[in-house]
Write a protein that binds this DNA or RNA. Structure first.
Length: 227
DNA sequence: ACGTCGATAATCT
DNA sequence: GATTATCGACGTA
C-alpha cells in the first residue's frame, strides 16, 4: 500500500488535477475498504483564481485548510446538505486544491450503493449505477466523507490516494493524456472572467486497456456488475 | 435529453 | 440576512 505522498501534491495544481485522473481514492470505513477510480477533477488555483474560496488571499475559518500542507484534505459543506472533498496542493501557504468531482466504483460496490441508495449494487438500475459517484457530493456520501475529515492528512489508512493498491486487488490504470478532456468548471458563475477557464478535467475513456484496434463505440458489455 | 426548482445549513457579511 | 465549488425530482421534448 503506497499512498501518494505530500510531494505528489506539492506541485502546480493543474498538474495534480490531471495526475489524479485514473488514480484511486481509497477509504477505510467501519472495517471495510472502499475505493473509487477518479475520472473527474477540478483545479482551484489559489489567490488569483476568482473561483477559489481563497481568492485574494481570503483567510477565514473555512479557508484556513487551503493554506495547510499539500496532501491535506479540504472538506467543505455546501447548499445545506452536501460535502465536497479536495486535496490541498502547492507548497504550504499557497491556498490551492483539487476538487474530486467524480469516479467509478472500484472496491466496496455494495457498501457505496447502500450509502447512496439503500440497496446493494446489483439491485441498482443502470441510471442509478451511473449516478453512484458522478458528482462531488455523491462521492462524499458514498465514501462517508464529512467535515470531520477537514484538515486530515491524505496519507493515512483511513483516506488516501494511490496509483494502485495491489493488496486490495487494485492494479494501476493510469490515464492516457489523450483521454483527458479539459472543460470549464461547474457551478462557479460567480467567478466572472475566470468562469471559462478550462480547469475541469474528465477522463473520457474508462476502459484503458491497451487495445490495438479500438472500435468506435462501447466495446465491452461488462458495463455493470463488476467482479 | 434538457430546463427549472426546492431542499437545507454552514459560512460569511 | 444572503450566498452557496450540489442533488434529485419533476416537467417538457
Amino acid at each position: 500500500m503506497e499512498p501518494l505522498s505530500e510531494a505528489f501534491f506539492a506541485r502546480d495544481t493543474l498538474s495534480v488535477a490531471k495526475a489524479l485522473l485514473g488514480a484511486f481514492l481509497v477509504r477505510r470505513l467501519g472495517g471495510a475498504w472502499l475505493a473509487v477510480r477518479i475520472v473527474e477533477t477540478e483545479a482551484y488555483v489559489g489567490r488569483r483564481d476568482r473561483a477559489c474560496h481563497a481568492y485574494g488571499g481570503r483567510r477565514t475559518a473555512r479557508t484556513e485548510t487551503l493554506f495547510a500542507a499539500p496532501g491535506t484534505a479540504y472538506v467543505y459543506f455546501v447548499y445545506g446538505m452536501h460535502h465536497c472533498l479536495n486535496a490541498v496542493t502547492e507548497p504550504e501557504g499557497e491556498p490551492a486544491a483539487v476538487l474530486i468531482r467524480g469516479g467509478e466504483p472500484a472496491l466496496g460496490h455494495d457498501l457505496m450503493a447502500r450509502r447512496r441508495f439503500g440497496a446493494p449494487f446489483a439491485a441498482l438500475s443502470p441510471a442509478r449505477r451511473r449516478a453512484l459517484l458522478d458528482g462531488p457530493g455523491k462521492l462524499c456520501q458514498a465514501l462517508g466523507v464529512d467535515l470531520r475529515l477537514n484538515g486530515a492528512p491524505l496519507t493515512r489508512r483511513s483516506l488516501f490516494f494511490a496509483e494502485g493498491v495491489p493488496e486490495l486487488g487494485l492494479a494501476p490504470r493510469p490515464a492516457v493524456p489523450a483521454d483527458i478532456r479539459a472543460t470549464p468548471r461547474i457551478g462557479i458563475d460567480y467567478a466572472g472572467p475566470d468562469r471559462a477557464l478550462p480547469w475541469r478535467f474528465v477522463l473520457t475513456t474508462t476502459h484503458s486497456e491497451t487495445e490495438a484496434s479500438t472500435p468506435r463505440r462501447s466495446c465491452s458489455t461488462n458495463r455493470s456488475g463488476r467482479p
